[in-house]
């Protein structure tokens, strides 16, 4: 295998700057999208379990729609198609005057997509709590809203900490799709460095190492969270 190794290229200007910029964009996309995904996902997940048939139907449609279309297609639709479908002025603003269109689109697309996944976790968490407890809460005189607030949601949140942290990590990985609409996040930057310097191995290793570090941090946070939210003596059905 003919290959000239040159690890110093990673520390050289401007490549180090590229890497750092890439990391910053990755975090910016992932964290902003997570806020949307978390907030919306909880609403939709709860909505799916509510006794009201219209609400749970709408929420189910949302989840099925966003789950069965690849994220890449969703991102393209938001970036290319939506500005065309919008009424003229909105469309024009989106294409010309909106600041950072790649960033905003990536955040919206990734956020809405991940929300459907979060919704599924929340739903299975609520269902894992068990109908016996729900009956007991109702029998105790609690209303539906009170039952969700004091019994179902607190317990289900503790149950879904592990899969939720997995979703949090996934959003970091999925942020790489933003490169398809031109956002120079970490993976894109490593590709750039590889093309400019022909030092593909070094460039991709750098990106890999950074992602692994992010993953390790996410796991540590997960374990700490699990320890804090543990219910003494409760094993749960999850």
């Amino acid at each position: 295998m003919n290959y000239n190794w040159n690890w110093s290229v990673l520390w050289a200007d401007p490549y180090l700057g590229w890497l750092i910029s890439g990391v910053q964009w990755t975090f910016a996309v992932a964290l902003a999208a997570w806020v949307i995904a978390f907030a919306l996902g909880i609403l939709i997940g709860v909505g799916r379990t509510l006794p009201s048939k219209p609400i749970s139907f709408i929420c189910t449609c949302y989840v099925e729609l966003f789950r069965n279309v690849p994220l890449l297609v969703q991102m393209f639709i938001w970036y290319f198609a939506v500005p065309e479908i919008m009424p003229e002025d909105v469309g024009r603003w989106m294409k010309r005057d909106m600041p950072n269109p790649e960033y905003v689109t990536a955040v919206v697309a990734l956020g809405l997509y991940t929300a459907s996944r979060v919704a599924e976790q929340v739903r299975s968490g609520i269902q894992a709590v068990g109908s016996g407890l729900t009956s007991a809460a109702y029998a105790n005189g609690l209303s539906t809203a009170q039952t969700y607030r004091y019994v179902l949601l607190p317990i289900s949140f503790r149950l879904i900490v592990p899969p939720m942290t997995s979703e949090f990590l996934t959003i970091f990985k999925n942020s790489s799709l933003a490169l398809t609409i031109g956002l120079l996040e970490l993976t894109a930057q490593s590709q750039q460095i590889a093309e400019f310097t022909f030092q593909g191995f070094e460039a991709f290793t750098a990106a890999t190492v950074i992602y692994v570090v992010i993953a390790l941090f996410a796991t540590m946070i997960a374990q700490t969270l699990e320890r804090f939210t543990k219910i003494p003596g409760f094993v749960g059905k999850g």
């Binding site: 990590l169 799709l177 490169l179 993976t187 490593s190 191995f201 991709f204 692994v212 993953a215």
Partner: peptide
Amino acid sequence: NLIRSVPLILVIFWFYFL
């Protein structure tokens, strides 16, 4: 664990290169 920590796009780039 290594593969599950990194995005698929990066893996695709890796193998295209490697």
